[in-house]
Amino acid sequence: MLMEILVSLLILVGGAFALLGSVGLARLPDFFMRLHGPTKATTLGVGSVVLAALVHGGLGEEGGGLRELAITLFLFITAPVTAHLLSKAALAERRRQERTQKQS
């Protein structure tokens, strides 16, 4: 009973974070603000859902939830790196555009 409540709460929290991140991606005004939606809130949302899967069925399996732990580790490593690279590329593009405007 307690396990089902915990899994349900984790799924609800994960869904709420994913929804919040999606709304932020759609509604925030500029690229750098929009970058926070998928990288912060959605990462926590998906991580919470994967944690719910780990609690629900992963611990009783033969692998002991290694698949879920690998997904979580991959998610928490790749999302910040991707956000950093996207922001660096956008910043470089903004600087390039400013230089071309000054030369005109």
Rank of each mutant, 00 (worst) to 15 (best):
V55K: 08
L69N: 08
T43D: 04
V49C: 03
S48Q: 11
H36V: 11
G63C: 07
P38T: 00
P38E: 00
G65T: 03
G57T: 13
L51K: 08
T42Q: 15
A52W: 02
G45H: 04
H36G: 10
A53H: 11
G58P: 00
R27W: 08
A52T: 02
T39L: 09
G65D: 03
L35D: 11
G58T: 06
P29V: 05
L54R: 07
D30N: 13
V50P: 00
E62M: 13
T39N: 15
G65I: 06
L54K: 08
E61A: 15
G47Q: 06
F32E: 05
E61Q: 13
L66E: 09
L59A: 11
V50T: 01
M33R: 11
M33E: 12
G64P: 07
T42V: 13
R27L: 11
L54E: 06
G64Q: 12
G60Y: 15
L35S: 14
F31L: 01
G64T: 05
R67Q: 12
V50H: 00
P38G: 01
T43C: 03
G60K: 14
V49G: 00
G47A: 10
H56G: 11
G58N: 03
G65M: 08
M33P: 01
G57K: 08
V49L: 06
H56F: 10
T42F: 05
R34N: 11
L44S: 09
G37H: 07
G57M: 14
G60S: 15
A53G: 15
G45W: 04
A41R: 01
A53R: 02
G45L: 00
S48G: 07
L51P: 04
D30H: 10
G64R: 09
L51W: 04
A41Y: 11
H56Q: 13
F32S: 06
L28M: 09
R34G: 15
G47Y: 02
T43V: 08
L66N: 01
V46F: 15
H36F: 13
K40V: 11
G37Y: 03
S48T: 13
T39Y: 15
D30V: 12
G37R: 03
R27T: 12
L66F: 05
T39D: 09
V46M: 14
L51T: 15
P29L: 04
G64Y: 05
T39G: 13
D30W: 01
R34C: 10
G47M: 06
G64A: 09
S48Y: 09
R27C: 00
T39V: 11
R27H: 04
G65R: 01
F31A: 09
T43M: 07
L28Q: 05
L44M: 13
L35E: 11
E68S: 10
A41G: 06
A53F: 12
R67P: 00
R34H: 12
F32T: 06
A52V: 02
G63L: 14
G65H: 00
A52H: 03
G37L: 00
L44Q: 08
E62H: 14
T43Q: 03
L28A: 02
L54F: 14
H56S: 15
M33Y: 12
E68R: 04
L66D: 07
T42D: 02
K40H: 05
G58R: 02
P38Y: 05
P38L: 02
E61K: 09
V49R: 01
L44I: 12
V49T: 02
L35H: 05
S48F: 07
